[in-house]
Design a protein around this nucleic acid. Structure first.
Length: 935
RNA sequence: GCCCGGGUGGUGGAAUGGCAGACACGGCCGCCUUAAAAGCGGCUGCCCCAAAAGGCGUGCGGGUUCGAGACCCGCCCCGGGCACCA
């Protein structure tokens, strides 16, 4: 049967087999001719003879993939196909289009995959990259492949290391609000401009002082330690429930000496420059929330019976009169020095935690806190815990002595790690005050009958000179008073913390840093880059019992002794140095890759300024510049997009780039979801074996339940682009992905619906090619006037849709045009050529083939996209629906020249029967639209 | 709890405040065929009905408007983000 149907398929039908043959041929053609090479203004990729040299530029990028061992499924290339259709259209519309693609290949998943398979990550990564290249190539994506790279290429990470050194060798000048070379700081110290102390410092002290100003610095601080992964993680890599984003292991706060980047100094600019970006509002909002700027004041509370001062940050200085106690984070540095030897007279029993002395109570509370994971600490509905330190502080506004507690609801890393507690106006403080029976003083008048902490606006009460003022006014007045009295100061704090930049991993960029006998870091000179990742078979990370917080990180590179110890001449003769053995986090390579595409082989510069300013430079005053369109998943809303903005701004400050944002416009594509099926035992069954009968789902004879979610191996519902190319051809697959819905909306994959896209392409093929003979069916006769109008209406609509990335509706219009031409015996070239050109962004191989059959030489990639003739967009006749009281009761057809009065008269005549002699109260004629009659 | 999105036929989805359901999948019918597939053509929101004609329809309840899927108010449900950040 199968062979019979195959033999009876017309010989020149556009089948999957024919599509495959056409696709391979055109992919080879594009490669051989460098069809999609984009000319640079300068350097080795410059090409003045290129058809788009000197044309307006368009720079489009995708978030490059992380090549996993599993290969691509049909969901992965959705955005890539979207940008490919868009850039193919814009190239035809006249732009010099840059659309590159690379691979993000350092990092945890590649390393874990290597450990699992027992193969070196360099080997598995190369294989995965190659597999991805093949899979993407098969889809006919029009990349300039001369610009492709992997972040693991030494030629690439040489520049990642170079940027690290730029960051290391700069400091943030708060008065200028920007990064400056560290040398300028050293000079200002040496000139004495920063005070006389410098001259008295030893050489080592001078280095330490300077190191403390660097944008990349080492610090001993509480960090996220993940024993299960054997590495520390950035805040961004820890989930809200205190687990690692990768692997879902518990994460513990531990004080460790690690590399940090001073991203916090850019907090204001990272917030404010969001206004210059054309990004989805939700993503901007997520960044604003992540940075979490809050304005308020620092207030000093002297410790009673001691010389210490507790500095707190508060957003509500207006409520100072309601501060009835204070809380320090358990790790706060002042705790030990304020704890008295014994409990003060009459200390409340619940305050002591059952300990005999304050020191014992503090010690016990700290120990318990350290053993808890973040998850336990922040568990919902948790009862507040804490313990009295035995010390009192003085409220600077009224001299009241208030008790000082430690409690884990105050975080060491935010603000000053200490708070004044105002239970009347803060829900957390209220909850704590209830547990510890602390006094509550309201300082804002709450509504009648209000229970609990009142956080809303209202007149101040119990607050002396602030009484009667609203919250905003009282805040300002209190800040003025604090500053005048020298007891505090207006201040801004951020939720954002400095970026933890080192990992205890093998598969990452080595730091271009060595240490001398002082233990202080020394930057290697640019001439020594790249610091190549040393080869080793012993690349596995040292991991631990995931629950065991009391473990020490160990870097795999430290095990390569002969690499760690190195003799170098750094200017004062050959000496032994110790290399930094941490590696950079996975984000490092993706923090700046958008720049390297511009000038991928430049050996003397990150990017030639001429190329950077052409592709990314600002186009007007206040324009941030950057990539014109950046497409990727919303999961990178904070991590990658925040880190890369930070690096870009540092490079901007140091004069290496002219744009101050990397990505001007961001578009989040949706996800392709899939159905998974579970039998009655709850076991997943292969989705491809499930059939639907009478609205139920069967696997064999048994009924199975359908679930909707991700596509994945474990859910047995993976569909690969390779299968789709095999069964339908790449063009059909592309059309289907673009036609199934708007690019930014997630939708379910339905293999059985793909055939609709194939039928469309088959019909389009048949317009040009006789399926029996292979002859061209097109005539040079002019198109009939009616179809001509359809053609131009559709050209206008498609252009509009393409500009707005509305590919689903663009394809619907192309299908409409194809269907309108299908019944015609022979089809006019006047219609077919524009149709082929308009199809080409979506089904480029098919379109190239048809373009050839229509008698054209070479590729259509640079052939102008059709433009609608405005004269053809005017309708011959307008049909007005006539509504009576909002319901359509008739219609009239009139010529476009008909006057409004004539339309009205015709409309009333058309619904005369419905009106039954009644006089209309009102008749509304909407020109070109409809007539509405009110009775 | 707070902040974003989103709810339209059996399904994916269309609709500058102006004829709801474009286009596609699926389904039904027809042509072609010995037959089937493919292809081509027709029908396909729901209810009533032989048909025509009606009636009802965009999560629910109100409102604005000649006219609301779209705008406003109040709910419900789904998805996502944030959540001891002082």
């Amino acid at each position: 049967m199968v062979t019979m149907s195959e033999t009876e398929t017309p010989p020149f039908r556009y089948t999957a087999a024919l599509a495959g043959e056409i696709e391979l041929r055109w992919q080879a053609f594009w490669d051989a001719n460098g069809t999609f090479h984009a000319p640079n203004p300068a350097g080795e990729l410059a090409d003045p003879d290129h058809p788009r040299a000197g044309a307006p530029k368009l720079h489009v990028q995708d978030m490059f993939p992380y090549p996993s061992g599993a290969g691509l499924h049909v969901g992965h290339p959705l955005g890539y196909i979207g940008t490919d259709c868009y850039t193919r259209y814009q190239r035809q519309a006249g732009f010099n289009v840059l659309h590159p693609m690379g691979f993000d290949a350092f990092g945890l998943p590649a390393e874990q995959y290597a450990v699992q398979t027992g193969t070196h990550p360099a080997v598995t990564t190369a294989a995965n990259v190659e597999r991805y290249r093949q899979q993407l190539r098969r889809l006919g994506l029009a990349y300039d492949d001369r610009r492709s790279f992997s972040t693991t290429d030494p030629d690439y990470y040489r520049w990642t290391q170079w940027i690290f050194l730029q960051v290391f060798n700069s400091w943030f000048d708060p008065s200028a609000g920007k990064a400056r070379p560290i040398q300028e700081l050293i000079e200002s110290y040496e000139s004495g401009a920063r005070g006389p102390e410098w001259a008295g410092l030893s050489a080592v002290e001078k280095r330490q002082l300077i190191d403390d100003h660097r944008l990349a610095y080492m610090s001993e601080a509480p960090v996220n330690w993940c024993p299960g992964l054997g590495t520390v993680l950035s805040n961004e890599e820890v989930t809200p429930d205190g687990r690692s984003e990768r692997g879902n292991f518990p994460v513990f706060k531990r004080s460790l000496k690690q590399w940090m980047m001073r991203i916090t100094t850019y907090g204001d600019r990272l917030i404010e420059d969001l206004d210059t970006l054309d990004w989805p509002e939700p993503v901007k909002l997520m960044q604003r929330n992540w940075i979490g700027r809050s304005r308020g004041a620092h207030v000093d509370f002297p410790v009673a019976s001691s010389t210490g001062v507790i500095k707190v940050f508060t957003t509500r200085p207006d409520t100072l009169f309601g501060a009835t106690y204070m809380v320090l984070a358990p790790e706060h540095e002042l705790v030990d020095s304020i704890v008295p030897a014994a409990w003060p007279q009459g200390t409340h029993a619940v305050w002591t935690g059952g300990a005999d002395t304050p020191a014992a109570a503090v010690e016990k509370y700290r120990r318990e806190a350290a053993e808890k994971t973040e998850e336990e600490r922040t568990a919902d509905g948790k009862v507040k815990t804490g313990v009295f330190t035995g010390a009192f502080a003085v409220n600077p506004v009224n001299g009241a002595e208030i008790p000082v507690f430690i409690a884990d609801y105050v975080l060491a890393g935010y603000g000053t790690g200490a708070i004044m507690a105002v239970p009347g106006q803060d829900e957390r403080d209220w909850a704590f005050a209830e547990v510890f029976e602390l006094p509550i003083i309201r300082t804002v008048e709450a509504p009648e009958g209000f229970e609990g902490a009142f956080t809303g606006d209202g007149p101040a009460i119990n607050s002396a000179w602030l009484d009667g003022k609203g919250v905003a006014e009282a805040k300002a007045a209190m800040i003025d008073w604090l500053e005048a009295e020298g007891k505090g100061k207006g201040a801004t704090t951020y939720r954002l913390r400095d970026w933890l930049f080192s990992r205890q991993r093998y598969w990452g960029e080595p730091f271009p840093i060595v240490y001398d006998e002082t233990g202080l870091p020394i930057a290697l000179p640019d001439s020594m880059l790249p610091v190549v990742l040393p080869d080793t078979d012993d690349f596995s990370p040292r991991t631990f019992d995931p629950e065991d917080a009391d473990t020490e990180p160990e870097t795999p590179l430290s095990r390569i002794k002969e690499w760690v110890q190195v003799e170098l001449d750094l200017g004062d003769g050959p000496k032994m140095y110790t290399r930094e053995t941490n590696t950079m986090p996975q984000w490092a390579g993706s923090c700046w890759y958008e720049l390297r595409y511009l000038d991928p082989h430049n050996e003397s510069k990150l990017v030639d300024p001429a190329n950077e300013s052409y592709w990314m430079g600002p186009r007007a005053d206040g324009d941030c510049g950057g990539v014109d369109l950046y497409v990727g998943g919303v999961e990178h809303a904070v991590l990658h997009l925040l880190y890369s903005r930070f690096w870009h701004k540092v490079l901007f400050d140091l004069g290496h780039v002219s744009s101050f944002e990397p990505f001007k416009k961001l578009f989040n594509q949706g996800y392709i979801q899939a159905y998974a099926f579970r039998d009655e035992r709850g076991v997943i069954v292969p989705a491809e074996e499930v059939v639907e009968r009478d609205g139920r789902w069967y696997h064999g004879d048994s009924v199975v339940n359908r679930e909707y979610g991700k596509m994945g191996k474990s859910l047995k519902n993976v569909v690969t682009p390779d299968e789709m190319c095999e069964q339908y051809g790449a063009d059909t697959f592309r059309v289907y992905e673009m036609a199934m819905g708007p690019l930014d909306v997630s939708r379910p994959w339905e293999t059985r619906a793909v055939v609709g896209s194939q039928r469309f392409l088959q019909r389009a093929w048949r317009l040009v090619v006789d399926e029996e003979t292979g002859a061209t069916r097109v005539t040079d006769e002019p198109l009939d006037p009616k179809t001509r109008k359809v053609l131009h209406r559709i050209i206008a609509g498609v252009r509009e849709d393409m500009e707005e990335l509305r590919f689903n509706t663009a394809i619907a219009k192309l299908i409409e045009l194809t269907n309108a031409l299908t019944p015609q015996e022979t089809v006019s070239r006047e219609a077919v050529e524009p149709l082929v050109l308009m199809i080409s962004p979506f089904a480029p191989h098919l379109a190239e083939e048809l373009w050839g059959k229509l008698g054209h030489e070479g590729s259509l990639a640079y052939t102008a996209f059709p433009v609608a003739d405005p004269a053809q967009l005017v309708a011959d006749a307008i049909t007005y629906p006539v509504q009576v009281n909002g319901k359509v009761r008739g219609r009239v057809e009139v010529s476009p020249e008909t006057t409004e009065d004539e339309v009205r008269a015709a409309a009333l005549a058309a619904v005369a029967e419905v009106l039954a002699g009644k006089d209309p109260k009102k008749v509304i004629v909407v020109k070109g639209r409809l007539v509405s009659v009110v009775v």
